[in-house]
C-alpha cells in the first residue's frame, strides 16, 4: 500500500465516502478479476465486487493496519464468492435477492475486457474452474492469478498451510482430468483442433 492509499484509508475511517472511492478505483481490477474467476459471469462479478467494497467500507474498523490491505480485501471477496457459489447450488429462494430488489444492477456494456470474456481461452478457463469446489477454486485463483504463497492463501481463506497444499493438489488433479476430458470431446468434434491451440506445451 502506498502513502496515498494509507491517507485515503485513514480518511475513509473518519467516514469520508470520497476517500474510499479512491480505494475502490485502486483495487477494482484485482477484486473484479477474482470475482469473475470465482463466479464465471461478468454481471455476477460486478455485483460481487461492488458488495465486497461495500462490506469493506462498512467494516473498515475491523481492518488491522498491520496486515496487507489487498489480502484483507481479497479475503472478503473470496468468502463472499464462496458463499454465493454455495447458495447457487441450493435450489431454495434467497432472502438476500429480495432484500436488494430495489437496487438495479448496472449494465456493464461492451468493453474490450468484456469482449475478451467471449474469447475461447476464457470460456475454457471458466469450464475448468466450474468443476472445482468453491474453496478449491479460490485457492487456485489466488495461487495462479495473484501469485499468493501458501501462507498468504491460508491467511486470506482462514485455512492452515497444509490444508492449502492438499486443496491445491486435489484441484490440480481435477483440473488435469477436466482438461483431458475437454480434449477428448474436442477431438471427437474437431479432430484437427490440437494444432490450433498456441498455448499447449509439447508432450514429454
Amino acid at each position: 500500500m502506498n502513502d496515498n492509499e494509507a491517507i485515503w484509508l485513514a480518511q475513509a475511517r473518519e467516514g469520508e465516502k470520497d476517500a474510499f472511492s479512491h480505494i475502490v478505483e485502486a483495487y477494482q481490477r484485482p477484486v473484479f478479476s477474482l470475482c469473475y474467476r470465482m463466479l464465471g459471469d461478468a454481471g455476477d462479478a460486478e455485483d460481487a465486487a461492488q458488495e465486497t467494497f461495500l462490506r469493506a467500507y462498512r467494516h473498515l474498523n475491523r481492518y488491522d493496519p498491520g496486515r496487507s490491505f489487498a489480502t484483507w480485501l481479497l479475503s472478503i471477496a473470496s468468502h463472499y464468492c464462496i458463499d454465493r457459489l454455495r447458495k447457487r447450488r441450493l435450489p431454495s429462494f434467497s432472502i438476500d435477492d429480495e432484500e436488494y430488489d430495489w437496487w438495479q444492477p448496472p449494465d456493464p456494456g461492451p468493453s474490450p475486457e468484456m469482449a475478451l470474456v467471449m474469447d475461447e481461452k476464457q470460456t475454457r478457463i471458466r469450464q475448468l474452474l466450474d468443476g472445482l469446489a468453491p474453496r478449491d477454486r479460490a485457492v487456485v485463483v489466488l495461487h495462479y492469478w495473484y501469485e499468493y504463497s501458501y501462507e498468504e492463501i491460508a491467511d486470506t481463506l482462514a485455512l492452515s498451510e497444509s490444508a492449502v497444499k492438499s486443496r491445491l493438489y486435489r484441484a490440480r488433479r481435477a483440473l488435469a482430468e477436466s482438461w483431458q476430458l475437454q480434449e477428448a470431446q474436442m477431438e471427437i468434434l474437431e479432430p484437427d483442433h490440437v494444432e490450433r491451440i498456441p498455448y499447449e506445451t509439447p508432450a514429454f
Partner: peptide, 9 residues
C-alpha cells in the same frame, strides 16, 4: 487480469 466496465467507482 480482467477489468470491470468503466465507471465502476
Amino acid at each position: 487480469d480482467l477489468e470491470p466496465a468503466p465507471g465502476f467507482a
